[in-house]
Simulated scan of single mutants.
Amino acid sequence: MPVTNRPLLWWLLALVGLVPAWWWAYTHLTDFADAVIGMLGLSRQTALGESLHFFAYDTPKVLLLLTGIVFVMGVVQTFFAPERTRALLAGKRAGVGNVLAALLGVVTPFCSCSAVPLFIGILSAGVPLGITFSFLISAPMVNEVALVMLFGLFGWKVAALYMGLGLSVAIVAGLVMGHLRLERYLEDWVQDIANGPASTSYEGDGLDWVSRFEAGGHHVKDIVGKVWPYVIAGIALGAGIHGYVPQDFMASIMGRSAWWSVPVAVVLGIPMYTNAAGIIPIVQALLGKGAALGTALAFMMSVIALSAPEMIILRKALKPPLIATFAGVVAVGILLVGYVFNLVL
């Protein structure tokens, strides 16, 4: 972590000014979107006007949410360095370890692909395979961006239910994977690392608040700087769906009445790759067109937790039978989440 001489007072003054500005901008998004289509001479009664209004409203909303939560989690991450995550999980029994691993996945902001190297690192600390899988599933699926955006777009009940069911998938899937004892399907080099000495040292202790705020700033620069094209592409696609896709057509494919809509949504999500920030606006648009909430969320969870790029990266560490088992167990969990959401909401 680079050493800085920037005084803590500077950071506090900056936050005192930026937080109210952030809140003001967030609470005036509708006015902004109305002004945009007004300047273009468009009406929300037209498909183009409604699409542009959706885009002008959701783009700053998602970017504001993303920037705020990534900064906060960048600060939080200074308390949960990868080495500390490994140390916290090492030596834990199945069950307790799975719960702890899933909870740690929520507070460590990793996407599905970036979680894979940490997955290997945790194995090297001697953490059981099933517990490690609970972390691998939870880290991308129940991440802080998804929770905050679901809360902002759909309310606390949807966000809480998503978190509860997502953690349940991670915990139960990890327990199942651990019970199957599939360590023999790790690639040989991963088994060699797992059987080697574990490191228990970690950075992060002794940092002052200036360094932690610096870490939050770097986190925003690194993550938002990489993610924003996916955000805009996802919102643009969502805007097109919102304005131009007929509601009856979408309801017929992803509606509550079709029992097969949830598995179809899971299958459709696997070839895609984006993050929660990019996929949630698409989910919002699908819901506006008549898609059932459980079906849309199953699609989102499939994109985040079962993406093809993640499977390709996992292939470097896992043999095909273990990848297939992992994908199958997680897919069953996602299907159950989709059906439960459709049933209770």
Rank of each mutant, 00 (worst) to 15 (best):
T4C: 05
L13N: 03
L13A: 11
L18I: 13
W22P: 00
W22V: 07
L29P: 01
G38E: 09
L52S: 06
F55M: 13
L63D: 02
V70N: 00
F71R: 12
F79A: 14
P82L: 05
T85Q: 14
R86P: 00
A90D: 02
N98M: 07
V99P: 01
A101N: 03
T108D: 08
P109W: 15
S112L: 06
C113S: 12
S114V: 15
A115N: 03
V116G: 06
F119D: 01
S138M: 08
P140S: 05
N143W: 07
N143S: 09
A146W: 11
L150K: 05
F151V: 09
L153P: 00
L161I: 12
G164H: 02
G164M: 03
V172D: 01
L182H: 02
E183D: 13
L186H: 04
V190G: 08
D192K: 14
I193V: 15
S201D: 12
D205V: 14
G206F: 06
V210I: 06
E214I: 06
H219T: 10
H219R: 12
H219F: 09
V220L: 03
V220M: 12
K221H: 13
I223A: 13
I223D: 01
G225R: 01
K226T: 14
A233T: 14
L237W: 00
V245W: 11
A251Y: 07
I253C: 00
R256A: 12
S257M: 08
V266Y: 01
V267K: 01
V267C: 10
P271A: 11
A276L: 07
Q284D: 14
L287R: 06
G290E: 03
G294I: 07
T295F: 10
A298F: 00
A308M: 15
P309I: 11
I313M: 14
L314M: 11
L314I: 02
K316Q: 11
L318M: 15
P321A: 00
I323A: 10
